[in-house]
């Protein structure tokens, strides 16, 4: 099962956002952060996204600044180091088991006179 807060913490992990290793020094992530901010200011396509274990995500200047701020705080950085244990490449998780499309009789209400025909009734 997916744990949403953990997933979000991984998605927005500063090490993934800045593209640096968890063992990097402060100078390294500061330099990388400044570089990314400059490139984002120039709207270069190559830095608009970054990889996470959950797939590609959009990188913004705000996210970069926030990541740098998080890494400057040692206790927060320790937490992010724990959460950056997974490789940046996308992991494959099992799909949620929802009712098979064939098993849904979407037009049942309309056929029995309880509404109009519609697709993707929620």
């Amino acid at each position: 099962m997916i744990l949403p807060r953990i997933a979000r913490a991984i998605e927005e992990n500063p090490f993934y956002v800045l593209g640096v290793r968890p063992e990097c020094t402060r100078q390294e992530f500061e330099r990388e952060g400044q570089k990314l901010l400059s490139m984002l200011a120039l709207d270069l396509a190559e830095v608009r996204t970054y990889n996470t274990p959950l797939g590609e995500r959009t990188r913004t200047t705000e996210l970069v600044r926030r990541s740098m701020a998080e890494l400057r705080e040692p206790s927060r950085r320790l937490l992010h180091e724990i959460l950056a244990a997974l490789p940046q490449s996308e992991i494959h998780t099992s799909q949620p088991t929802r009712p098979e499309l064939d098993d849904r009789w979407v037009n049942a209400p309309a056929l029995f006179g309880y509404g109009r025909f519609r697709e993707g009734r929620q």
Partner: peptide
């Protein structure tokens, strides 16, 4: 740790 993180991202039904 890696196993726990992977399990936390598994989107299978709870």
């Amino acid at each position: 740790l890696e196993g726990a993180l992977r399990a936390s991202l598994d989107s299978a039904d709870p």
